[in-house]
Design a protein around this nucleic acid. Structure first.
Lengths: 196, 196
DNA sequence: TTGTCAACCGGAGACAGTCTCCGTATTCTG
DNA sequence: CAGAATACGGAGACTGTCTCCGGTTGACAA
């Protein structure tokens, strides 16, 4: 309909794959803010070639994260099928936080791209946001999440935890402590349903 | 002892003041990541002059934030004097979050400088961190904050909230919702002291 | 195989930002 | 007012982003 007018030329496909592989390594090693020209150099390709295949950093990130996002979507779908709203949400938040720790700078990039229709990364993360919305909404309906909270609020907070812990020496432990606080704080205050 | 070998030369003092004033405006308008060369230009001063007075962005930020930090310290001291540990901490976190919203990029800058002895900004924020530590420690001792949490954890989370809300259209409201979650989540689980 | 052309490559270079070096200018001091 | 101490400022080195376009390569038909 819109794309795939013709299969890629062989050299183009080669370069595309090579760039993707190099980018994955570079981002693993140096975080999501690694120099793009550097990736091009490491892939033995001119900057023009990189920018032709990936118009901007977001697009490259989105391509690198394709599997990542797919895995998250899959696991999210399982949780959506889980009959326990509170437990499923809890596990989802842990899952999400773990995934956000995969690369440095990832949470910041996703946060910045959220809600931007132009952003390839934003598009790539849509399933993730959808899953979150489903789980949060369901939990709120079940009364295990404060009524005033948006699904976006909750996701944003998880991203925030990833953000503020990513340079800590005891990252995982600190992130865990904070997520515990978040999960506990999500619940409505005990006397919320009592009054009136 | 260490500093103030001699009063500043008149032209130096003039430039210093002018840079500070221009920087305050620029940061208010464009956030903490505004171009330093641009600040120099606006102050009708060469980049060299700016960098002589403020060796790096942190130093400039620290100077701009001097009043800000002092005000926070003052209000923090009042809260330290408050006999109610839980209430004082609650008010402190609100206060802190409000202050962190003063300039865009502020929370990120402070977060990055925290625990760096070389950083002028880190040094400028020391009183803020001290106040936080006092209030959190006291509240934890009083049993209104989970025992596993560090004062740094709590501060970091407030910074996180500032960070993730700073570009939202309904910043203040979202920040409020999230701080409510944080404050609620800080409390130990109801059955924590019961068992055993 | 060869010719043709659309598709693709790569790198020069424009632009913006950080930060330094050092010849020149200004201020202070006696 | 002269000399010394201090400060100025801008050229420019460096890094990173991103574009433009002359030259090259691969796909396909003849």
């Amino acid at each position: 309909m819109t794309t795939a007018a013709r299969p890629m030329r062989a050299d183009a496909r080669r370069n595309y794959e090579r760039l993707l592989a190099v980018a994955r390594d570079a981002i693993t090693e140096h975080g999501a803010e690694v120099s793009l020209d550097d990736i091009a150099r490491r892939a033995h390709v001119g900057p023009g070639t990189l920018y032709r295949h990936f118009p901007n950093r977001d697009a490259l990130l989105a391509a690198v994260l394709a599997d990542w996002a797919e895995e998250l979507r899959r696991q999210g779908d399982e949780l959506v099928a889980d009959p326990d709203p509170a437990g499923a949400l809890d596990r989802w938040l842990h899952l999400l936080l773990g995934h956000l720790g995969t690369y440095r700078g990832l949470a910041a990039a996703i946060l910045a791209s959220a809600g931007d229709d132009e952003s390839a990364l934003g598009h790539a993360c849509q399933p993730m946001h959808d899953t979150g919305r489903t789980l949060v909404d369901r939990a709120r309906t079940a009364g295990t999440v404060r009524s005033e909270l948006t699904a976006a609020d909750v996701h944003r907070m998880v991203h925030g935890i990833a953000l503020i812990t990513e340079n800590l020496p005891d990252r995982a432990a600190a992130a865990d402590r904070m997520l515990t606080v978040l999960v506990a704080g999500l619940r409505p205050p005990p006397d919320a349903a009592a009054g009136h």
